[in-house]
Design a protein around this nucleic acid. Structure first.
Lengths: 203, 203
DNA sequence: TACTATAGAGAACGAACGTTTTCGATGTCA
DNA sequence: TGACATCGAAAACGTTCGTTCTCTATAGTA
């Protein structure tokens, strides 16, 4: 009848319930890992920043690596949702493809932007952690797939989506490292590639 | 009269001279850092792999960070030389621009390829080490400048070079993470962008 | 040959890491 | 109220890190 109180009854003396504590920890870990890199952030720092004791942290997560994985899963969810929201607002399939680059532009301009967390994590840990490498690979593949759907909706040939993906990836690293407004460059290039691809179609 | 023996006389009992030892250390460190990430490689591992004792290592370099910086400097040199060699082989300015993507393709297919070391280092350490962030930024800026020169030689407008740079950057991360043949995709997109840019010129 | 300086191997150091445990304090249920 | 469970804070554990130091062997100089 009342499932939420039932859960609360199980963890009697908790200041906050497990789900909220987990969410707080993942949010804090996401910010810390993104800003400083994963290995540079110790569990003590995470405990302090999240406001959750070390003991509870290790009751909620089996290891730091598990936290990393859940952070990446959360960031993937956030990315996918943001992308889809931006694309949904655009009226035509062509506009949906371009909306991706507007979405990137807003992201690049946000405070603390430091590139794609999947690219960063892959560079830092992909060489020694197959799990992290696979998570990054899956994330990028899903983006490719999403782009391919949008491109197909626009009636474009199959080669367009990978080309636009390269622009988006390049814009992320360039904006992070060089601080340039690479979203605008990427968008302009995307217009050219899209028009060229649609022009080659025998419609 | 004999400057080389004079140097050898200064370091009497050396098995190999300082310059060779330094080069060996930087080569070994470059391979290790690239394959596993920087923080994942300890000085003991580097000492063993380079065949240089810890004591000597710290006589040759003041710190691990100094080794990292010199590794990046060496990789920058190698990248610049390889790029220029590839471009020089191409007959026309347009072919020089495209030769970059052929160069990338060969690199991506090489053993142990794991993306751009500057992007990886930036992701791992850029958040806490301004030096590393600046080295990565300078490297990418030099690439942008090189591309701009080639594009200008081809008679293209100024917006082309940043667009091609995005393709190259995106191809590097995509090839590293997804393992796809992104150099071919990038090259095809580059052809479209170059032709479009040259077509807009009022010649 | 005796002296000096450097080499390499590795022990040792202090700090930081991920993880576990201890320790009162607090809230829940019989 | 009293037994119990869980909390946060922090000490402690074993390991690893970057860096320094010790030790012995050896090569060059006089």
């Amino acid at each position: 009848m009342n499932p939420a109180p039932a859960v609360a009854a199980k963890t009697r003396a908790s200041v906050i319930d497990d789900a909220s504590a987990r969410a707080k920890a993942i949010a804090a870990a996401g910010d810390l890992f993104y800003a400083r890199g994963i290995q540079s952030v110790g569990m003590d720092t995470l405990s302090r920043d999240a406001g959750i004791g070390l003991k509870r942290l290790y009751q909620l997560f089996p290891s730091k690596e598990a936290i990393v994985e859940q952070v990446l899963a959360a960031r993937h969810e956030k990315w996918t949702t943001g992308l889809d929201t931006a694309a949904r607002r655009a009226p035509t399939p062509r506009d949906k493809l371009l909306a991706i680059f507007d979405f990137l532009g807003e992201w690049f301009a946000s405070d603390g932007f430091r590139g794609c967390v999947f690219i960063n994590s892959f560079g830092e840990l992909g060489g020694k952690s197959p799990r992290i490498a696979e998570i990054a690979r899956a994330h990028k593949q899903q983006f490719q797939h999403y782009l391919a759907e949008l491109a197909a909706d626009a009636g474009a040939p199959a080669f367009l989506a990978p080309q636009l993906a390269l622009l988006a990836e390049g814009a992320q690293t360039t904006a992070a490292i060089s601080g340039a407004d690479s979203a605008a460059d990427a968008r302009a290039a995307a217009v050219t590639l899209i028009d060229a691809a649609l022009g080659t179609q025998a419609r």
